[in-house]
Every structure is written in structure tokens, then in C-alpha cells.
């Protein structure tokens, strides 16, 4: 089973839920696809096993050969190249590495070159949790290739928890894609409700079933619960604000390690996710 843990915006406790879910179940893999801010490892303290650079291939321009004819720019379907008189400009994050520009250039003025966008870190944490972290370089815009690289590491044998980037942009969609279930973490505030609704729309369109965790559930209003009821989305867990938990979090300690009570709470959450996934595949079979 692959569970994507996502949220319509940052700061809802998404990583907390992903980490505690992974530790409570144990013997699984956690893919940290929140590549701009990968902090699951801060709570899991894995023993690092490997660190490898992640690169993408983009064209390098040889100005001495170029006649600025503009053919490469015309050909590039992804608008990655702009040619102005005497200038050749690449928007590297738009390049999909199709290879077309190298072929169309009559002067051989473009050559493939690799560009490092970040690192892929693999480690092993307690409870037999394998942690794979995609760490994008600061300021690097190519989140999607990095997420794809992290997801390539997904295990076929053990369950997988994916910590997704916050928001509902392309990066989140790529991270959620392929999951059996998407667990959306939200707060019961009007803003939380608005972001959750957007996330439900986006994930729903991908045909991935959703379930909700309400964090800081004792603050705010009933909007999120009403929304979930209206959309037929199960609320699997409500986590009230807890001072001890917040302090453990600040120390970089996971809730399940700080207090055994949380261990059973998150184990139960996992069981309910499994039930949902089974039910879903049964529904799909009879459809």
C-alpha cells in the first residue's frame, strides 16, 4: 500500500502525521518528497546509508559556434530556449530533456551537460523505517525531476508513506500520483477549509481516494467537518493541541516515541487506511 500524506498548505502538521504514521506501523519506507523543505529526517534520525547527487541533463550553449538562427528555440516544445539577436537564453527548469535542440542545431552549438539539482539521501531509522529524502538545492526550481527521482526508489515489497510538498501545484500532484490513498492533513479554520477543498478537488481529479486528519482539532470551527461530510470524505483522526507533543516536536522527537498513547493512535490510523484501501480495490473490482 502506498499512502500519500499531503496538505493544501504548509504548516498543518503534515510531516508530523507522516513520520508518526511511518514509525507506528514500522517495517516500511518513507519517501520525503517535500523536496524544498525535507524535514522528515529531523524526526526520524536515520542512520545515513548513501548520499548521491541528482542531476538533470540540459543543453549547454557554445557561443562561438552559434549563429543565433533561432531554430532551437522554434523547435523546443517546452519553450525552454529564447534566442535574441546575439543572445541565447535557457530556462533550465522548463527543459524536459527531449534532445531535439541538439539535433536541429545546424552548427553543433549545443551539447548535453549535466546540472546538479540536489541530493538523494537514503537512511535507516528505528522501527525498520527506510527514509529516502530528496533534498533540492536552495533556490532550485526543478522540484518535479527530484520528486520523480525519489519516487523511483519506492519499494515494491513494503508499504510506502510519501510526505508530499504542501499546496496543490504540479509538485504535489507528482508526489501524490500513484498512491492508493491520499491522507490530507488540515486545520479546522476557514483558511484550512479553503485549502482542503482545493486539495480534495485536485486529488479527486487524479482518482486517488482521500481521507482527512484534522490537526489542532480543538481550535477553530466546524467548517472542515461539514466539508468532509458533504464531500463524503472520512475524517480518520482528530489531534487536539497538546503541549507535550508540541515540546517533543520542538526537540525533534516524534510523538509516538515521546508518549506510548500516540503509538496506538497512529497504529489505528494505519489500520483504518488499510481498510479503506481494501474497500477501494473491492469497489474497483465490482465496477
Amino acid at each position: 500500500m502506498r499512502v500519500a500524506v499531503a496538505s493544501g498548505k504548509g504548516g498543518t502538521g503534515k510531516t508530523t502525521v507522516a513520520v508518526n504514521l511511518a514509525l507506528a506501523r514500522g517495517h516500511l519506507q518513507l519517501l520525503d518528497c517535500d523536496v524544498e523543505d525535507p524535514d522528515a529526517a529531523l524526526f526520524l534520525h536515520p542512520e545515513i546509508q548513501s548520499v548521491v547527487p541528482v542531476t538533470v541533463t540540459v543543453p549547454r550553449h557554445l557561443p562561438d559556434r552559434c549563429t543565433f538562427c533561432g531554430r532551437c528555440a522554434q523547435l523546443c516544445a517546452y519553450n525552454a530556449i529564447v534566442v535574441l539577436p546575439g543572445q541565447w537564453l535557457l530556462t533550465a527548469e522548463l527543459c524536459k530533456d527531449c534532445g531535439g535542440c541538439y539535433l536541429v542545431c545546424p552548427e553543433q552549438a549545443l551539447v548535453p551537460s549535466s546540472r546538479e539539482i540536489g541530493t538523494l539521501i537514503r537512511g535507516l531509522a528505528d522501527h525498520d523505517v527506510e527514509v529516502v529524502t530528496g533534498d533540492l538545492r536552495p533556490g532550485e526550481a526543478m522540484a518535479t525531476p527530484m520528486i520523480r527521482r525519489v519516487k523511483k526508489m519506492a519499494s515494491d515489497e513494503s508499504p510506502v508513506v510519501v510526505d508530499c510538498p504542501p499546496g496543490t501545484a504540479c509538485a504535489m500532484v507528482h508526489a501524490v500520483d500513484g498512491a492508493d490513498l491520499c491522507l490530507l492533513v488540515t486545520e479546522p479554520t476557514p483558511f484550512g477549509c479553503h485549502d482542503l477543498e482545493q486539495a480534495l478537488d485536485v486529488v479527486g481529479a487524479m482518482d486517488v481516494p482521500c481521507a482527512v486528519v484534522i490537526n489542532r482539532s480543538d481550535l477553530g470551527d466546524a467548517g472542515v467537518r461539514t466539508l468532509c461530510e458533504r464531500r463524503g470524505v472520512p475524517v480518520l483522526l482528530e489531534i487536539p493541541f497538546d503541549r507535550d507533543l508540541a515540546e517533543a516536536y520542538a526537540r525533534g522527537q516524534a510523538a509516538v516515541d515521546a508518549d506510548g498513547r500516540w503509538l496506538s493512535v497512529f497504529r489505528e490510523l494505519w489500520d483504518r487506511l488499510e481498510e479503506l484501501a481494501v474497500q477501494r480495490s473491492r469497489d474497483a473490482a465490482t465496477r
Partner: peptide, 11 residues
């Protein structure tokens, strides 16, 4: 455009 609307418009 799927991507690169800004650079195309600029050009």
C-alpha cells in the same frame, strides 16, 4: 502555453 508563457511573451 503549458510552461514558458512568460518567456514567450517577453520574446
Amino acid at each position: 502555453e503549458g510552461g514558458g508563457a512568460g518567456t514567450q511573451a517577453a520574446q
